[in-house]
Amino acid sequence: MDSVGWMALGATILIASTLMDRLEQQHINPYTIPGLLPGLLGIAMIVLGGLLALRSWRRGGVKRPPSNPTAQDRAQRRRLWMVIALCMTFDVALVGHGLPFWLAGWIFVTTSILLLQHATRKAAGQKLTARVLLKAGAIGLGAGLAITLVFQEIFLVHLP
C-alpha cells in the first residue's frame, strides 16, 4: 500500500518536472533547467517505491489478512481524531480571525483538558466534577495569558 503511494507521488513529481517551464526564452544553460533535480527525485522515489513493493510481495504482504481492532484500539482511534479535530479547529477557526490570542488559547486549552479528562474518567466510570471544570478553566486562562505576556510583551514576538 505504502509502495503504491510512493510510486504515485514519484510519478506525479516526474511528470510535473517534465512539464515545468524550461526558461528557453531566457536562453538559460540547458543544464540548469528548474525541473532537473525534482525530476531525478521523482525517478528515485519510483525506484525505491518499486523496491518496497517487491519486498512486500516477497514477504507475502499482499495476502496478509486485516487485523481486527480491539475495543482499546477503537477508543485510542476516537481519542486521536478528537485531538486532531480540536487542534485543527483552534488553528483554522479560532486563530488569526480577530479573536485575541489569550482568549483563543483559553478556549482551546480548557476545552481540550475537559474533553480529554472526560474520556479518561469515563473509561474509569467517573464523571467530571465542578472542581475539575474550574481547574481546567484556570489552567486555560493561565496558559493563554502567560504565553501572550511572555512572547508578546517580554520578548516582543508577534502573535497571531
Binding site: V95, G96, F101, F108, V109, S112, I113, Q117, A143, V157
Partner: peptide, 26 residues
C-alpha cells in the same frame, strides 16, 4: 492531558512567530 494542549498552543506560536504568516501554522 493538561500539558499537551499547552504544548500545542506553543507549537502554534512557534510556527507563526518566524514570518508572521498564518500559512506557516497550516
Amino acid at each position: 492531558t493538561v500539558l499537551m494542549p499547552i504544548i500545542f498552543l506553543l507549537c502554534t506560536v512557534g510556527a507563526f512567530a518566524g514570518a508572521s504568516r498564518l500559512f506557516d501554522i497550516y
